[in-house]
């Protein structure tokens, strides 16, 4: 344990920041689609005055709450942990609640579209079922044979570290829906399912690695990956998705984890 911190310290002037938050104007363009109204999608746009701390989600809320209540999108936690609000923002898959407006080029309209490759239900809402179907198929749960210990299973810190990166997945689908292979071949498992397989294949407590490797050795499995790195760039949790897929490929070839 560290030594006890000082009871009193000199603080640097202006520490913490804050005060007046700057405002700026943006144009928000949202791709609209509602089959109850029309089979055609179209763009709507709004001019909004926003604050320096605002995110794309705040701009969407401002539209929904003050201009057009019919604009539809999913969201919940609003700070990047629940995975509800993955969308295409200026052509890149991101979470709306984690994308600060000030970090975008606000001199041009900000374009917001649904993620690609999954059927659009309404506006920014897509059907997530195909995504979760792939997830379920890779046996995303610990399978442990042999006797259950009375206390916890032991796992060294190094063994725990081996699969740490892929435990961070929040199933937002930003990676899978950024993958060009997934766009053209909806049967492909996609990066998120492989990431979640990786999380168990490399867990020293798990005994079903071979079965998962067999599932992913399928023609719609890891070999469809063309290593374009879109997924790694899209992941809002910073998971090295392409690396995880490569490790699964390697494990299939060597049957060693």
């Amino acid at each position: 344990m560290e030594k006890e911190p000082a009871s009193k310290v000199e603080l640097a002037p202006g520490v913490g920041g804050g005060g007046e938050i700057p405002t700026f104007d943006i144009t928000l363009k949202v791709r609209r689609y509602n089959p109850e109204v029309s089979d055609e999608a179209h763009w709507d746009e709004w001019q909004l005055t926003m604050y320096g701390t605002d995110r794309v989600l705040d701009a969407l809320h401002k539209v929904k709450w003050e201009h057009d209540g019919s604009v539809s999108f999913r969201r919940s936690c609003a700070h990047g942990v629940c995975g509800s609000d993955a969308m295409r923002i200026n052509g890149r898959n991101r979470l709306a609640c984690k994308t600060l407006l000030k970090d975008l080029d606000t001199s041009k309209p900000i374009l917001v579209e649904p993620i690609k490759g999954l059927p659009v239900e309404k506006d920014l809402i897509v059907d997530m079922e195909p995504f979760f179907q792939s997830y379920r198929e890779i046996m995303p749960f610990l399978v442990s044979k042999g006797h259950e210990p009375t206390k916890e299973r032991l796992q060294s810190a190094e063994e725990r570290d081996r699969y740490d990166d892929t435990t961070k997945c929040i199933l937002c689908a930003a990676c899978t829906s950024s993958c060009p292979v997934f766009w053209t071949d909806g049967q492909y498992f996609g990066p998120a399912a492989i990431v979640n397989a990786h999380r168990f294949i490399f867990d020293s407590r798990d005994d079903a690695g071979d079965m998962r490797l067999e599932i992913l050795n399928d023609k719609e499995g890891v070999w469809r990956c063309r290593t374009t790195f879109n997924c790694s760039e899209a992941c809002p949790r910073g998971i090295q998705v392409t690396k995880a897929i490569s490790e699964v490929k390697q494990a299939i070839l060597t049957r060693k984890v």
Binding site: F141, L142, S144, E148, K151, E152, R153, L154, Q155, S156, A157, E159, R160, Y163, D164, T167, F200, D203, R205, D206
Partner: peptide, 19 residues
């Protein structure tokens, strides 16, 4: 806690490998 560990929860570990 032990139920969760058996279900697969990746707890941080001590040097001895315990939770």
């Amino acid at each position: 806690v032990l139920d969760l560990e058996k279900m697969g929860l990746p707890f941080n570990r001590t040097p001895e490998g315990r939770i």
